[in-house]
Amino acid sequence: MSAFDPTDPHGFHAHEAHHGHHVVSGRTLVAVLGALVFFTVLTVMCSRAEIWVGNALHIAVPHWINVAGAMSIAVIKGTLVLLFFMQLRYDNPLNAIIFFFCLFTLALFLGLTSLDVGSRGMVFPWKANEVIAGGNSVGLTRQIGGVPMTGQVPIYEWAKEARPAQLGPKAFAAELAKHEAEHPHAPIVSDASHSRPRTGVTPGLFDAQAPEPHAGEAPAEEGH
C-alpha cells in the first residue's frame, strides 16, 4: 500500500493542485444574480401574460401551463442558487447527493400523500354496483360460442342460460343426463338403511306455527 498522507488518509484532497478551496469569481456571482432577477421578472410577467391572454382572446388558458411555467422557472432559479451561490458545482459531490436524497424524500411524501387524497372519492367500477351474491359480472366479458354476457347477473346464472343456447337442445340434454348420472339427487325419503335430512329447512322455524298434521298423513314435503 502506498504511503498515505496522515492529514488526508482518504485522499479527498489528493487531486487538489492548489491549496484551499475554489473561489467563485465576482463576475460569475453577478451574472447569476442577474439571471435570477431576470427569471423572477419573467415568471411574474408570464403569469400576468396568461391572464391577459385569457381575457383578451377570450380563451381559457389551461391551468397546467400556468403551473408548469411557474414551476419550471422556479426550478431553474433554484438550481442556479444551489449550483453557484451554495457552490454545489465546486464542492464535494457528497453534498449534492445529500440534497438529492432530500428532494427525493420530499417527492415521495408529496406523491404518495397526493395519491391518497386525490383518489379518495374514487370508487372502483367493479365495486360501484349493488352487491349481489356471486358477483354482478361487471367488467367480465365472456363469450362462449357467441353468447355474450347479458345484464348484470351472477356468472353462474349466466352459465345456466348460455350453455344450453350454445350446445343446442340435443347436446345439452346429453350433458344433462351425464350430469344426473354422476350427481344423482339424493332420495328425499328415508329408507331402512339411509336417513335423509330434510334440507333447505331452518330447524324449528315453523314449529310454533305448523298446523297439526292430520292423523295418518305424512308431513308436507318442501322442494328437493
Binding site: 391572464i51 433554484g78 442558487v81 451561490f85 451554495m86
Partner: peptide, 19 residues
C-alpha cells in the same frame, strides 16, 4: 441563508403566481 432564499424562490410562485 441561501436555503432560506431557495425556499422563498419556490414559495413565491406557488402562493402569488399560480392562479
Amino acid at each position: 441563508w441561501h436555503l432560506v432564499d431557495l425556499i422563498w424562490i419556490f414559495l413565491f410562485p406557488l402562493l402569488y403566481l399560480i392562479h
